[in-house]
Design a protein around this nucleic acid. Structure first.
Length: 786
DNA sequence: CCGTGCAAAAAACTT
DNA sequence: TTTTGCACGG
């Protein structure tokens, strides 16, 4: 029997969700319906009744932050009994499994995890190598397609068989995909999508490995199920498969385990699966999330039970009415209407500014008013659709003294110096990672330029070894003494670090990192440079080392590999701590799962929300609407919608009409605020759509009229400079030999004293009596033969 | 090989 | 607007 204390304060539906037992349970949890409470109490119930040991529970959350929070809440309910549960993201859980079973998949335990930027850099090089840009391939496009294939679990060979082999473009893509996978393999690396897909392949190829986890995890719980993609879905399916008797016997005898959990046939029955989700909050289709996973759950698991949670404990009725009205415009959805007994609440406030700055000023002013009304900064959030929108907000907040923090954006871990540092650290544990080595081989400057790297790479290709190995053989490569010494030094440093990271008593990550940054001369180079930006970079590295130290305090056993893993899987939403006393600026995507007393949704304009990139994609508009819905439902008490008539971006000024979603709000839901100061002209211009919209019917022509007629907005004219076009000189097939006399446009007459043949890059050394010896590129130098 | 300066490109959300 | 790539001169 579940402890009644665990059910206290729950409504009947929530209670049922906590108490239900069976093979599969789908909890359709509307926004703010208390699903985290339900999920944590459900797990606490399993533990406190001894239905499950902690080690038999696997809970998957969307972010590491959510995982940590869930663990805390369960601990608060059952204390120590919670130790040993796996509560993590899909990616963290899969990396953990893959590191243990790496050899089965032809990987080494310390494999590197490539983030999107790493992948992009790799693809970029592959495109160049194959001269594939002539076929119109872009790194982003290629990567998106590879990602889609991996999320659909279409492996390379399956894909190769499916393409039209007469289409050069298809063949080109196939070659890129093939080379990309080969490069990852050689570097002992996985990209984000591989992490999931390879785990599925692992389970499918090695049933006895899968059985280890199928036997262990008796209860699998997945949060935010609406945002799972096909690979994640397949992974869950694998985990909740029963283990056939023969395999169970084999695994248990091999491990020396007791025979247990068997049903009447001797099989180990499938684990129980609980998923929680809300198809109205599915906002990751671009990442392969498949809304069908939740829509078709009942068909996938015929014995499943579905429980609907519709009572909202978060927002006022006005906010919910707005949310319901907007989302009702999506077709094909299960009817669901959020309700509350919190009460009517304050009206939603709307504002239209001239510019992003004007909009930001509105936000700042309203924040001041909210503060006066007793709302804490930490209870105020400002949502943006794109990270580019944060700039004016930050500028105005700084000027007005509004304390804020920015979640996501240009992330700390994406800065060049931080990535360099991690490349060094990666090489300490994964010497196969050519990409990491190329990144730091000349950072700081060691005189190892493109030409040298190309020579090293040529040797690596010839021998089929990683680049790292070639460094060891530097003496046989015939480089000059200076260059050879530099390479030897780097080689020794990396060996040092490898020794520190992997010995009988491995050094903690921050020590290895600090050693690398100091002895490589990286830190020195930054502090010696006069560039003020380099000072900031140097500080970032200090910050990084202390973060690594902090990590070690939190996880005293953590190795370099653990640290690198944690960093690679770190997400924007994970850095939400420490927001006390500050308002939060973040994207609508990052806002999922959070709640605030007061919420500002900014940029509610066409081209931004819905984003212009989305309107042509199938389902794109519906997804944008869900995004708006997610934003609205984050608010407890106050909701503000704002937009700007024009916005600066990419060099010029762009103006957009208000978002079509505004016309989907209930009539008179929004109190449009009279604006300050120069607002008169704008006010009249805006009146056109304002009037039309409150009726809800005015679509089409009249909608955008207001802005187009607005007298104030005059896009700045772009000045076009005609720069004097330098003629590209080409001496064609001109050949020079020692002893030839030439005339140079600047240096006058001279005599050739040496020629290094290198095709189009042939260099001649010429002695000019007036200027001394110069080295000239024969093909393009302004010279003529005499 | 390095630093400079100019031209061109980029383009949304994120594990 | 900011970042990246490329040509140039040293």
């Amino acid at each position: 029997m579940i402890d009644p204390a665990l059910l206290e304060g729950l409504n009947p539906r929530q209670r049922e969700a906590v108490e239900h037992r069976g093979q599969a349970l789908l909890i359709v949890a509307g926004a703010g319906s208390g699903k985290t409470s339900v999920l944590t109490r459900r797990i606490a119930g399993l533990l406190s009744t001894r239905e499950a040991w902690p080690s038999q529970i696997l809970a998957i959350t969307f972010t590491n932050k959510a995982a940590a929070e869930m663990r805390e809440r369960i601990e608060a309910l059952v204390g120590q009994a919670a130790d040993g549960m796996w509560i993590s993201t899909f990616h963290s859980a899969c990396v953990r499994i893959l590191r243990r079973q790496a050899e089965s998949m032809g990987l080494k335990e310390a494999f590197t995890i490539y983030d999107s930027a790493d992948s992009k850099a790799l693809v970029k090089r592959l495109i160049r190598d194959l001269d594939a840009d002539s076929l119109g391939f872009t790194p982003g496009g290629v990567l998106a397609r590879i990602s889609r294939l991996k999320n659909e679990l279409t492996d390379l060979e399956t894909f190769a068989r499916s393409i039209d082999a007469t289409d050069p473009k298809e063949l080109g893509f196939l070659a890129l995909y093939r080379n990309y996978q080969a490069a990852l393999r050689r570097a002992n690396a996985l990209d984000f999508d591989d992490i999931i897909a390879e785990t599925v392949y692992l389970f499918r190829a090695f049933p006895e490995v899968a059985a280890l986890y199928q036997r262990r995890f008796r209860h699998v719980l997945v949060d935010e199920y609406q945002d799972t993609n096909h690979a994640q879905y397949a992974l869950i399916r694998e985990l909740v498969r029963p283990v056939p008797r023969a395999i169970a016997d084999e695994v248990e005898s091999r491990q020396g385990w007791q025979r247990e959990l068997r049903d009447e046939h001797g099989d180990i029955p499938a684990a129980s699966l609980t998923v929680v989700g809300d198809s109205d909050q599915s906002i990751y289709a671009f990442r392969g999330a498949d809304i069908r996973n939740i829509v078709e759950f009942e068909r996938d698991f015929p014995e499943s039970r579905t429980i609907l949670l519709e009572q909202n404990y978060r927002s006022t009725q006005r906010i919910l009415d707005a949310a319901n009205a907007v989302i009702a415009n999506n077709f094909d959805r299960r009817e669901k209407r959020l309700f509350t007994d919190v009460g009517e609440g304050e009206p939603i406030v709307g504002y239209t500014g001239y510019s992003g700055h004007d909009e930001a000023q509105f936000v700042a002013d309203e924040i001041a008013a909210l503060r006066a009304a007793g709302i804490e900064y930490s209870e105020i959030a400002i949502f943006v659709r794109t990270n580019a929108q944060t700039r004016p907000l930050e500028e105005v907040f700084i000027r007005e003294g509004v304390p804020y923090r920015l979640v996501g954006g240009t992330r700390f871990y994406e800065r060049a110096e931080v990535k360099d540092a991690f490349a060094y650290l990666t090489l300490a544990v994964n010497p196969d990672d050519d990409l990491a080595l190329r990144r730091i081989i000349n950072a700081p400057k060691r005189g190892i330029g493109d030409a040298t790297v190309a020579a090293l790479q040529a040797r690596a290709d010839r021998d089929g070894t990683p680049l790292r190995e070639v460094l060891r053989e530097v003496d046989s490569l015939g480089f000059g003494p200076k260059l050879s010494a530099a390479i030897r030094e780097l080689d020794a440093l990396l060996d040092d670090a490898a020794g520190m990271a992997d010995s009988a008593s491995p050094r903690p990550p921050h020590e290895v990192l600090s050693h690398l940054l100091t002895h490589s001369g990286y830190k020195d180079a930054l502090s010696r440079s006069g560039d003020p930006q380099d000072e900031a970079r140097s500080e970032n590295l200090d910050e990084l080392v202390s973060q690594a130290k902090e990590f070690r305090v939190q996880y005293p056993e953590a190795t370099v590999v653990d640290y690198l893993t944690s960093v690679a899987l770190f997400a924007a939403a994970d850095e939400l701590d420490g927001g006390e006393g500050r308002a939060t600026i973040m994207t609508l995507h990052t806002a999922k799962g959070l709640e605030f007393d007061a919420v500002f949704i900014t940029g509610v304009e066409e081209d931004l929300l819905p984003h212009r990139m989305s309107v042509n994609e199938p389902g794109g508009l519906a997804e944008e609407r869900r995004l708006f819905y997610v934003g609205i439902t984050r608010a407890r008490k106050r909701l503000f919608l704002s937009l700007a008539a024009s916005r600066a971006g990419f060099g010029d000024i762009h103006s957009s009409p208000p978002s079509r979603f505004l016309s989907e709000l209930p009539a008179d839901a929004v109190a449009w605020r009279e604006d300050r100061g120069a607002g008169r002209q704008l006010g009249s211009a805006v009146g056109g759509y304002r009037g039309g919209w409150s009726g809800g019917g005015a679509r089409g022509a009249s909608r955008s009229r207001g802005f187009l007629e607005s007298p104030v907005i005059e896009p700045r004219r772009k000045t076009e400079w005609k720069s004097p076009v330098a003629t590209i000189r080409d001496n064609g097939e001109l050949t020079l030999a020692v002893g030839d006399r030439i005339r140079h446009a600047d240096f006058g007459e001279g005599r050739v004293v040496g020629v290094v043949e290198n095709g189009a890059k042939t260099v001649a050394e010429v002695d000019f009596p007036a200027k001394g010896r110069k080295r000239l590129l024969v093909k393009v130098a302004p010279i003529e033969k005499l």
